[in-house]
């Protein structure tokens, strides 16, 4: 696991972040139960068993956390999960670029969109430095990907303008 930098050491008393997983687990399990309530027993037996244990575990965790907050031992802050470093390190921007990558790859095709993603992703992280090198590297990597995945392995990755053009040329 990654080592945290000193500047980002989270406040140990903020336990809001710790509660995300149990709350998600609790919510998902209850939703899951709602989908099997009228199902044959074969669909229910295993899920009810696992789900009940998970509900108990999550509920106890949440209860204990609330108790800690009430006693003043901790607060509901989210500093473990979110901090200024998410913006300064480029994490948030990289996440947005990743979402755009998945959204656009279907239209732009594998090679062009991967180039766009690698270029912008690296640029975000390098804070705008080494543009030329990053452009070259991104182009090289996406072309290697094109050669390996689409030409050699004939994987059915999304095709876009670049792939159509290459198909005409080849």
């Amino acid at each position: 696991m990654t080592e945290k930098q000193n500047s980002n050491t989270p406040d140990k008393r903020s336990i809001g972040g710790d509660m995300v997983i149990p709350v998600v687990a609790l919510g998902f399990t209850l939703y899951y139960f709602s989908t099997i309530i009228d199902s044959p027993w074969t669909a229910q037996v295993s899920a009810f068993f696992i789900g009940t244990i998970l509900i108990v575990l999550a509920a106890v965790f949440i209860f204990k956390s609330v108790a800690k907050v009430r006693l003043g031992e901790a607060g509901f802050g989210f500093s473990k999960l979110f901090s200024k470093a998410d913006i300064t390190s480029g994490r948030l921007s990289l996440f947005i670029v990743t979402v755009l990558y998945i959204l656009l790859i279907e239209w732009g095709g594998f090679t062009l969109t991967t180039f766009g993603f690698l270029f912008s992703g690296m640029l975000v992280l390098s804070k705008g430095r080494d543009k030329g090198f990053i452009a070259l590297l991104s182009a090289g990597l996406s072309l290697v990907g094109y050669g390996l995945f689409i030409i050699v392995f004939e994987t059915r990755l999304p095709h876009g303008p670049f792939e159509w053009l290459m198909a005409l040329v080849l």
């Binding site: 989908t35 099997i36 199902s39 044959p40 074969t42 669909a43 899920a47």
Partner: peptide, 9 residues
């Protein structure tokens, strides 16, 4: 589910 193929979750 593996027996009756009921969709779950």
């Amino acid at each position: 589910d593996v027996v009756y193929a009921t969709p779950r979750g």
